[in-house]
Each structure stands twice: as C-alpha cells, then as structure tokens.
Amino acid sequence: MPEFHMVVCVKVVPRSDEIRVDRETRLLDRRHARLELNPPDMSALEMALNTRDRYGGKLDILSMGPLSFEPLLRVGLAMGCDHIVLLSDRAFGGADTLATTYTLAKGIEKMGGADLIFCGEESADGATGQVPAGLAEWLNVSQLTLLTELSLDLDKQTATGRRSLKGGYEILETPLPCVVSVKNASQEPRFINFSRKAWAYETERVTVWNAVDLNADPESIGLTGSPTTVSELARVPVRERKRIKLEGEAMAKAEQLAVIIRDSL
C-alpha cells in the first residue's frame, strides 16, 4: 500500500493593514506590505501536522504564487511538513476562485493525488472561503468543511470530523479521499522547530511546477481562465473610532443609542 499522502494548501498573503489601493490604476498595491502565511491556513497546518503525528504518512505543502513566496512557505517545513510544491507561472496570475481551484487540483493530480487535503477556512485577502469546496469538486472527492476536530479510520478509509454549525456542531463521516477545511482559529499552530530550520532551507525541499509541468489547459488558468472581472476597487479608509459622546436626558440618550444600534446592524 502506498504511503498515506496528505496535502495542506497554504497561501501567502500581504498583511491586511499594509496594503494600499493605487488611486489612479485602482489596483492593489502590495509592494510595501509585508507578507505572511494566510492566518486561517495556520490552523489548517496545525490540524494537518497533528493528523500526521497521530496517523503517520507524508505531509506536503501546496501553494500557488511567485517564487518570492518560497521562503515564507519554508516556515511550514520548519513546523514539520515534509515538502513544498509551489505552482508558479505568470500565466497563473489574476486567477479567481474557478481558475485557482482548477490549478490547485491540477497540482494535486500531478503530485499523484492525495488521500487527505487540508485547507484554511478562507484567505485573509480574497476571503471567498470557496476554495475548499471548489477543489473537492474538481477532484471529485468528498468534503468536510469548518472542522474543529478530525479523526481517521485508515482500515475503513474514512474521515470523521466535527463541523461547526451556528450555535452547535455536527459529527460527519465521509470516505477518503477528502478535502477538509479547518475552522479559523480553531487550532493553535505549533511554533517553528528550530532544529528543523537548516533542513527546511535546503534547496531540494521545494518543487516548482509551471503551467506546462501541470499539463494545465491554458484557457482555464489565471486571468484567462477567470470568468469574473473586477470593475472597481477601493480601499476602505482605516477605521478611526468616531468617539461621539451622546448628550441629553437619560431617556433621550437611550433612544439615540437604540437608533444607532439599529442603523449599524
């Protein structure tokens, strides 16, 4: 039996508080923003590492983006992952959810498939939260989303997860292979293990594939493969608290406050 293979999808994102929108081009200006691993993906990394600790197997990181993302992804190796596959090609740029999930699915296909694929709940930049389900559809596998806990039965080849619901949860069981999305902030990611750091920075830890390597349909990737178009983009001004003191008689103030509450919701 081949080794149990897990993949965790990780995105590198600019810090939300440091991106700007160029007033003229109306494009996102990320040049001055420092990069980080998408915070929700940190929960996915932890659940993946924890699952590997419990059940064994190989755990790879899959990401899409420019080569400059590589050093950040190596953080995941230092945390305990085995290998990185970075899908990098100019042609992948400008992808919406459809093109992104297609490309990631091609990456997993090229890796020889996976028994279990972990994703964060959503990305801090795009915040669509639609990648896990879309990826599962392309791969034609089942999905367990918004999990706070996961266990496996490798004999029965099933995954059982605790999926959060509004005010509650449900325990779901589904056959492997499966895509799992991990509820944001549900796992505290372990810190970098410094004894792994030198190893993590060795060249051979990273495999880079471009569109040709993936045998991807050129019409289905990047901006070309994205049916949606952005017509307008604007930066919402950084939140400054208004600091408005409500004055008047007690009754009047309470009524004023009630109106404010209703208007804000």
């Binding site: 459809l98 639609q130 389900a133």
Partner: peptide
Amino acid sequence: GATHNGRDLAGRLAVRFRTGLNAD
C-alpha cells in the same frame, strides 16, 4: 446565503457549472 451550508454548496456547484462565484 453565505451560511456554512450555503458556502459549501455554492463553492462546489460553481465549479460544476464552470462559472464564477462572488462570495460573501
């Protein structure tokens, strides 16, 4: 609606239709 189930369904179906999806 962008509920837990709504998001699951939308993400999956958008790919099945091969269409775009604007989330949340």
